[in-house]
């Protein structure tokens, strides 16, 4: 079974919801400027970036799948680090 269409749709969803949450987080930072909220905004921004970069590469085709998987893992690791810092930041 070919999952490419579903994969594109899933990454598009990641990009859209990531962007939506990034916008909310940026509005929150503007209202209450704090390191924590800035980190949360950065975390959601990274999720949106992952959706755009990886999803876009898949959609356009030609990219090495193992490299995209590696890129995806890097984004997720970065998101986890940033959200961890946001959780412990005061």
């Amino acid at each position: 079974m070919d999952y490419s269409a579903w994969t594109n749709a899933a990454f598009a969803g990641v990009a859209v919801f990531g962007l939506l949450l990034t916008v909310i987080a940026v509005l929150a930072v503007r209202r209450v400027p704090s390191p924590r909220m800035a980190l949360v905004a950065a975390g959601f921004g990274l999720i949106a970036a992952q959706g755009i970069v990886v999803g876009g590469s898949l959609f356009l085709g030609g990219a090495d799948l193992s490299f995209l998987l590696f890129l995806s893992a890097l984004f997720e690791a970065a998101v986890l680090v940033v959200l961890f810092l946001a959780t412990v930041a005061r």
Partner: peptide, 11 residues
Amino acid sequence: LDRFLRFWSEL
């Protein structure tokens, strides 16, 4: 936005 702020601020 208030709920978002409260959720993350209370962590």
